[in-house]
Amino acid sequence: MPVRRGHVAPQNTFLDTIIRKFEGQSRKFIIANARVENCAVIYCNDGFCELCGYSRAEVMQRPCTCDFLHGPRTQRRAAAQIAQALLGAEERKVEIAFYRKDGSCFLCLVDVVPVKNEDGAVIMFILNFEVVMEKDMVGSPAHDTNHRGPPTSWLAPGRAKTFRLKLPALLALTARESSVRSGGAGGAGAPGAVVVDVDLTPAAPSSESLALDEVTAMDNHVAGLGPAEERRALVGPGSPPRSAPGQLPSPRAHSLNPDASGSSCSLARTRSRESCASVRRASSADDIEAMRAGVLPPPPRHASTGAMHPLRSGLLNSTSDSDLVRYRTISKIPQITLNFVDLKGDPFLASPTSDREIIAPKIKERTHNVTEKVTQVLSLGADVLPEYKLQAPRIHRWTILHYSPFKAVWDWLILLLVIYTAVFTPYSAAFLLKETEEGPPATECGYACQPLAVVDLIVDIMFIVDILINFRTTYVNANEEVVSHPGRIAVHYFKGWFLIDMVAAIPFDLLI
């Protein structure tokens, strides 16, 4: 008679799926529990143990900040960024110097990925580790590398530091407007667009060049630039800015003055950032001319202004700041037409079709709590990747769950009947059967004279019903998954307890 339990259901295979997918890609990662103190490590794979030199037993239950890997060259700011990422709910990448158990130093890129439950609360953290440099290539500990984003994938490793954006290309926007319009339909740009040429040739750093990471940081200074100062900065030398009595002219307006920039070969870094931020506020060169004239017309309804409409929906549905990093990277690809469009465009503009998908598509409701890094690593669709929660398995109709209350009560009843059979069957065979043979035949009273025979008949009927119930009862397979398919249940029961239950259900007393 089957006594099969499996009270692990309803099970959740999400954690096993993450481990299996990460292991298949030869990654070095740990999984931490966000619900406990210090976000203790609950799993670390073999790749991480080989990377740091510690065994799994030495890593388990330690804080996922990996303070046991810190050393003299470990930056405090990087460690603080990892700790801050564990307090938030967004994906974050941090470069930090770690030390192995043998004392060797290596520069590592740590990717902190939160995993949320159905309520939107962070319950786990996945920390992925990628070695960037070994100890002989690690720089000085005073050099802070965590304020910069990861290198873009479309640049060669040897040319990542030679990417320079020439400031004269930004200063000569109005001069290039006529050349853009003359391109017409034969050019790649839309009317009114501004073409910015980027020099990728390796050259020595000069005062006129600005690194790509500095251009990325310009967006942080746009908020500090007032509207009046932006307007004066875009007017140009024809209309000098008016300053109040006793007030000095704005240095932001002076930063885009061609006369002032041409007199000296070098520009201050602050002026460069502010000038680029001011130019980015204009949607095209037409807006710059309109600002000089004193009238700013409404933005025209053409394809170039609607190019950012799908980007707005993608940004609203993005799951991490990696989408913004990807957008900034692609927006700086050289030799393309940049349409400086305000994100607050007309909502009635139709979304044009684009061959290049900048932001990841909208994630469906079932995966809105899973970050983009987890979705990318697992390579699963929205119909396959579940949320991290207890999910009731989908069972067929008329199927009994093996952990249901009805099955528990039924098993206790069958257990009592088995005990009765084990006690009274030998007793009936030894004593009652002998008395029946010696006594007179009682054929007239039937079952009324033999109450134990009636009980034995009921017990046999219950055993037959138990066999039928076992054909529709779920079970737990070797992978700790609840199986509810009727065919698989029948095959599993035939290979197991079916023969024993059938022999126990045969009414031998009635056959004798």
Score class of each variant (00 low, 15 high):
359 I>A: 14
115 V>H: 13
5 R>C: 07
130 E>W: 06
198 V>K: 03
187 G>D: 15
201 T>V: 05
350 A>M: 13
251 P>R: 11
173 L>C: 13
71 G>W: 01
123 I>P: 13
26 S>W: 06
178 S>H: 06
17 T>A: 12
275 S>I: 14
333 I>Q: 15
146 N>S: 15
158 G>H: 09
283 S>V: 11
215 V>S: 15
290 A>P: 12
28 K>F: 09
86 L>G: 01
344 K>R: 05
38 N>I: 01
258 P>I: 07
249 P>N: 10
325 V>M: 14
263 S>P: 11
90 E>D: 13
375 T>Y: 08
164 R>S: 12
11 Q>K: 09
176 R>Q: 08
159 R>N: 07
93 K>S: 13
122 V>T: 12
179 S>F: 15
283 S>T: 14
104 S>R: 07
19 I>E: 01
88 G>Y: 13
296 L>S: 05
69 L>V: 01
152 T>F: 09
296 L>G: 12
306 G>F: 07
92 R>A: 13
214 E>I: 05
376 Q>T: 04
315 L>D: 15
16 D>A: 15
153 S>D: 11
146 N>Q: 15
303 A>N: 10
329 T>Y: 08
263 S>N: 05
216 T>Q: 05
187 G>K: 04
46 D>R: 10
94 V>P: 01
82 I>M: 08
367 T>E: 09
199 D>K: 01
348 F>K: 14
384 V>N: 11
212 L>C: 06
94 V>M: 01
4 R>S: 14
6 G>I: 07
288 I>P: 07
121 A>L: 06
51 L>V: 01
269 R>K: 08
277 A>Y: 12
161 K>H: 05
149 G>M: 06
330 I>R: 12
150 P>N: 07
221 H>Y: 08
52 C>Q: 01
78 A>N: 10
205 P>M: 06
180 V>R: 15
162 T>L: 15
138 V>Y: 06
222 V>T: 06
134 E>F: 03
334 P>V: 01
87 L>C: 15
137 M>W: 14
78 A>H: 13
161 K>R: 12
43 Y>C: 01
337 T>A: 15
115 V>K: 06
92 R>Q: 08
225 L>Q: 08
244 A>E: 14
77 R>S: 12
40 A>H: 05
302 H>C: 11
230 E>Y: 15
172 A>M: 01
75 Q>A: 14
274 E>R: 07
